[in-house]
C-alpha cells in the first residue's frame, strides 16, 4: 500500500456465539473519530473468529462506512449487523493505524 493509504484488513466474523463480544469506543465528534475496539470478550463471536484485535479501528461494517457516525450510531449499526438474520456473518474492515 502507498504511504497515504494505511493497511486495512477485511475480517469476516461468523455469528458463532449468541453475542458479538466486542466493546468499542469513539465516533464522530470525539477524540477517537472512528470506533476502536477496546475489549474482546472470551467466548463471543469476535473472539471465536480470532482475527479481530484490541486497538484496531473499524473503518466499515458490511460495507457501510463508520466515518462521520457518532458513537451511538456506529454502535447501533454494528448491533443491527449482528442481529439481522439476513447474514450469518458480519464483515469488518479494520486497520491497525489510528
Amino acid at each position: 500500500p502507498g504511504l497515504l493509504e494505511p493497511t486495512s484488513t477485511l475480517v469476516r466474523v461468523a455469528k458463532s456465539a449468541s453475542t458479538l463480544g466486542i466493546a468499542i469506543e469513539g465516533g464522530a465528534n470525539t477524540r477517537q473519530p472512528l470506533p476502536r475496539i477496546v475489549t474482546i470478550q472470551r467466548g463471543g463471536s469476535a473472539h471465536n473468529c480470532g482475527q479481530l484485535k484490541v486497538g484496531q479501528v473499524i473503518l466499515e461494517v458490511n460495507g457501510a462506512t463508520m466515518r462521520g457516525r457518532e458513537h451511538r450510531d456506529a454502535a447501533r449499526l454494528i448491533a443491527e449487523a449482528f442481529k439481522t438474520k439476513e447474514r450469518d456473518h458480519v464483515d469488518f474492515l479494520v486497520t491497525e493505524f489510528n
Binding site: 466493546a23 468499542i24 469513539g26 465516533g27 465528534n29 470525539t30 477524540r31 458513537h71 454502535a75
Partner: peptide, 15 residues
C-alpha cells in the same frame, strides 16, 4: 492539534 484536545472522550459500548 488544539482542536483535538478540546474534543470530548467517547463513551464505551459493549456489543
Amino acid at each position: 492539534r488544539e482542536k483535538r484536545l478540546t474534543l470530548p472522550p467517547s463513551e464505551i459500548t459493549l456489543l
